[in-house]
Design a protein around this nucleic acid. Structure first.
Lengths: 158, 158
DNA sequence: GTCGGCCTACTCGGATAGTACGTGTCCGAGTGAAACGGG
DNA sequence: CCCGTTTCACTCGGACACGTACTATCCGAGTAGGCCGAC
């Protein structure tokens, strides 16, 4: 799995804490985690294309969450970066060479079915957890997290 | 996910139907599915390293299942090809730059925990399905599958 | 007829190129804000 | 003092190199089986 997924998921709770009315430049988020600014920008662009965040150009521009953090799931973020297609691609090799029984389609590919079943379990688990859940868990362990984030992103502004 | 996973998983039920006392060369399996022989051989080598199949050299050599198909899970095969490490790698970016609270470790990374939870659901689902289950499902839909496989792999031998 | 040795053909196994995708970087188009000047 | 215009700095967005890992291939080491000859 791409490393950009980790960056994108980490960015979201910060955007949530900073509120929906405030835009954060990719460069500032990158500085927060010491990441390559241009490359993090690329990942945020992918989030924007997927409708997870909304971009704003010009001065005081940046990215903000497109909807309340309760409505954004980990599945949304992962799908935005990795793509919607399933990881296991069935190329129907059972219909090739000596294994071909002649009839196309017919019974579904048992292996494809099994792999998809596992992948659906993964997707279901990711879809059951929202950015708000992540933010809550973090604040539960360190209650000053949101305040620290707000201060850090506010300091360099003044 | 690598395409080799599909090839490896498809190969296993065939090895199961052909019995444990009979070895099948990689080249013959490749011909069965019209795959690059040398490359399929590479995947089978990975299965051998993981202890899923046992290789045999020399004439009448090849690969056979290392244990009964009921004891081989999809997880075993996928892990043999893709590796044991989890897909989402947490690089602890939360402890870098302005996000660093000073204390290493401390509370577990909430994002890592959530991603791992989803991945465990995936692994559990894969581990719950054996090669024997796959073979049974296939035979349920087309009862002559095992017989056809045995005949095809036997024909070129005589 | 049987046994031992040799030879051959066949198999895996790892080392070696080619290619697609993820990683990282750069510069330009567009925009919003702020500064400036005139009314 | 207020408003319109201009300028400017800042942001995203897509186009451009680089590295790694998957894909594909080839050739050599090793082995099991079969053949041949001697006993």
């Amino acid at each position: 799995m791409s490393e950009g997924v980790e960056w994108a998921v980490h960015s979201c709770p910060n955007l949530a804490w900073l509120g929906e009315e405030r835009a954060v430049p990719a460069a500032k988020l990158a500085a927060f985690y010491e990441l390559p600014p241009a490359y993090l920008n690329k990942q945020l662009q992918a989030l924007a294309r997927a409708g997870v965040v909304t971009p704003t150009s010009g001065s005081r521009g940046g990215f903000r969450l497109a909807r309340p953090p309760e409505k954004i799931t980990l599945m949304d973020v992962v799908a935005a970066i990795e793509g919607e297609e399933e990881a296991f691609r069935c190329t129907e090799i059972r219909h090739r060479g000596g294994s071909d029984s002649g009839e196309r389609g017919g019974p579904p590919c048992a292996i494809h079915t099994s792999m998809r079943k596992a992948e659906l379990a993964w997707r279901r688990e990711l879809a059951s957890q929202s950015i708000a859940d992540i933010a809550s868990t973090v604040e539960e362990h360190s209650p000053d997290a949101s305040e620290r984030v707000r201060r850090w992103f506010g300091d360099t502004r003044a």
